[in-house]
């Protein structure tokens, strides 16, 4: 296995399949009374978050603890960044501590790649700017395989602000390595030009949802309202929000996913979230298993 996981883009299909396969063994560990294994005992991980995050940080921290890794949490906006430390010095400082894993989230695309080149620790990208969020795409793929048994042959719709979403990017990169029909749905101001990838674009949600197996919703950043990207929350909800009626256009056994946190009543209605077709909370559990797997695979054998 490679030293770092900075993106899905440069992973091979085989590597992705190894991660997905191993994740099911880790999911079994999470069902036991004792949910902790000594797989990475004596190793140390730093969670380096330059952007606020509750869920992803909690998920990584729990994954690390369940692998018996020692954990150091650094929320950077409140410490060195304020004092003007450059990213390179932050990286070198961490390396001097003798850390084994760096989990990094940063608002600048490419920051994890830069850190990875400058530290000997394994670097895991927990989200960088509008570029990638690889562990989210891996947990999404694992959740799909868990329900559908495969990725190949599926029709998957990704709905929302594709342009600004690192979750969408990583998912598109991952699904493109399999035989998946990818549909991107959203207002024209939010659809990215993914010309290098085989995707179908839909501005009309009803048409886009027809006959799909999976509906992946993205979070709408409400703070973008009034900046010319979408007119109002009400209008967005009306045209691109997922409700039970719209979900009826997808296949009868279609499943609904969302990376969280959700805006109930905006991009997704409450009854969809709580319906039997939603696997949104399974995604959270699976996130733990997948993150344990990634750390284990990066750290388990000689580099």
């Amino acid at each position: 296995m490679r030293k770092d996981l900075v993106g899905i883009k440069d992973l091979s299909r085989k590597e992705i399949e190894l991660i997905l396969g191993t994740s099911s063994s880790f999911k079994d560990v999470l069902k036991r009374d004792i949910k902790k294994v000594p797989a990475l005992r004596g190793k140390t991980a730093v969670n380096l978050f330059f952007e606020p995050s509750t869920r992803t940080r909690a998920s990584f921290e729990l994954a690390e603890k369940r692998l018996s890794t020692d954990v150091l949490n650094l929320s950077m906006p409140t410490s060195s960044v304020v004092k003007g430390e450059v990213l390179l010095d932050t990286a070198k400082t961490i390396d001097s501590y003798g850390i084994d894993f760096v989990v990094i989230r940063h608002s600048s695309s490419g920051a994890p790649h830069f850190i990875a080149r400058n530290v000997s620790a394994s670097v895991i990208n927990a989200g960088d700017g509008i570029n990638e969020h690889p562990t989210q795409a891996l947990l999404d793929a694992f959740s799909i395989v868990e329900r559908k048994g495969r990725l190949d042959g599926l029709k998957i719709a990704i709905v929302g602000d594709i342009l600004h979403s690192r979750v969408a990017k990583s998912n598109i990169y991952l699904l493109s390595k399999f035989d998946v029909a990818i549909r991107l749905i959203g207002p024209p101001t939010m659809i990215a030009d993914m010309a290098d990838y085989n995707v179908d674009l839909f501005y009309d949600m009803d048409r886009g949802l027809e006959d799909v197996d999976i509906v992946m919703m993205l979070r709408i950043q409400i703070e973008r309202q009034g900046k010319g990207i979408f007119p109002s929350i009400q209008e967005y909800a009306k045209k691109w929000g997922l409700n039970m009626q719209r979900l009826g256009l997808a296949k009868r056994d279609a499943i609904v996913m969302h990376p969280g946190p959700m805006n109930r009543g905006v991009e997704i209605s409450s009854d969809v979230v709580d319906s039997g077709q939603s696997i949104i909370f399974d995604q959270v559990t699976n996130g733990l298993a997948v993150r344990m797997t990634v750390m284990y695979l990066l750290g388990g054998s000689q580099k």
Partner: peptide
């Protein structure tokens, strides 16, 4: 952990 050469497959318990 960390010193073995090959990547081990985690199988089912």
């Amino acid at each position: 952990v960390g010193i073995r050469k090959e990547q081990l497959i985690v199988r089912k318990t």
